[in-house]
Design a protein around this nucleic acid. Structure first.
Lengths: 207, 207
DNA sequence: GTTGCAATTGGCACTAAGTGCCAATAAAGT
DNA sequence: ACTTTATTGGCACTTAGTGCCAATTGCAAC
């Protein structure tokens, strides 16, 4: 997976070369998302994206391995964000509390974004050929979160098992909240759906 | 995963045409799996599969929409199996108990299969380009299990939420047990890893 | 069993994703 | 200014997947 975020790293000029690359990358993502949202994913060819971003088709594939990776890159940073956020939670919290908090933070981060997260979420939800990419992204989240938990719990077999289970339950809860959010057409804040889902988690697992 | 689908439909001769189709279909799956296991998924072309199954490339694509679908078809029936198994569980069980039981049943079903489920699980685990297919399959399981739960709980928003959450937790537990199974190289029965994981689930969520 | 119908098949040509290779170019270091 | 190195774009190639049409094959009714 590629790296590099879109917004602002004006702090450090790391040379013309790197700045140019970052610009091209951002240009590609922006052009691609505009086209995806307008015409759909399958209906958009990489040639169109390349042309819109004013690079050659060949260069596009140097920045992104697949067309889907461009879509993924848009939410790029969410994995890093979640990992860092989990790492930052105090150890006294239960793992589930920590998970609830970091996903809430994520939701707020996305809400304050300039691009309409709901529109993208809806597009991914509707188009069956896009589902695989969100599944992949969520799997990546699980990997990263599990790694943090393993670091905390130690690396014994049963600790690892617990870490994976918790990471997956966290992501499962997020996905469930996301479903609800889409079901109400984004009218209620994602945040409230997350709180509700995690509350349900506590209750559901007892009965 | 394996369910050898309809190994014997000898009871009903539905005409030569249909029998021929079933034969071609089985032939394609068998040829594909042989090639996938021998050379890997990406290294196997659909032309090779078509040739091995003695049909034209064009015909192959009439039986399966994508190359990946052939791989998925090998495990076709697991979704049906899980759905039916969950439906058959007594209502007095807690949902999590039911889930533990049906996944254990699935594991035993797979263990008694003629094809080596571990070899396939390992292949899918190793090859990154194959991960998407297992993710898709697990998502399908979630869909089916959630549907059964919704049928049981009623179709209110919060019931649906609970249904999805439970379905996903079930699948998450299965996946975690599967990881452990692969980690010990299939030496211990999948069944025991499942029991362990579900036990961990109860304990983990409290603390 | 012959004739007519509908489904299945295979060949061909096409689009689009993704890759290897190489020559041209633009940045970085000296 | 000169050399080195990374980036670029063009081209040709492979493979997945699709539309179209003509040939074949199973099926049924006569």
């Amino acid at each position: 997976m590629a790296d590099a975020h879109d917004t602002a790293d004006a702090q450090e000029s790391k040379g013309l070369r790197e700045r140019k690359q970052a610009r091209v990358r951002a240009e590609l993502i922006e052009a691609a998302m505009r086209l995806f949202l307008r015409q759909g994913f399958d209906e958009t060819t990489v040639d169109q994206i390349a042309e819109a971003a004013e690079v050659s088709r060949r260069t596009l594939f140097r920045y992104f391995q697949t067309k889907g990776d461009i879509l993924m890159a848009w939410t790029r940073g969410t994995s890093d964000f979640l990992e860092a956020a989990l790492q930052a939670r105090p150890r006294r919290e239960t793992p589930l509390q920590s998970l609830r908090e970091i996903f809430t933070e994520l939701a707020e981060q996305l809400a304050s974004n300039n691009v309409d997260a709901y529109a993208v979420a809806l597009m991914i939800d509707r188009d069956p050929s896009l589902r695989q990419y969100s599944l992949q992204k969520h799997a990546e989240w699980e990997d990263r979160l599990a790694a943090v938990f393993i670091e905390r719990f130690g690396a014994s077999a049963s600790s690892e098992q617990r870490a994976w289970l918790l990471a997956r339950i966290g992501v499962a809860s997020f996905r469930t909240a996301l479903d609800q959010w889409i079901a109400v057409q984004g009218r209620t804040a994602m945040r409230s759906h997350l709180i509700e889902t995690f509350a349900l988690l506590d209750r559901s697992l007892v009965s």
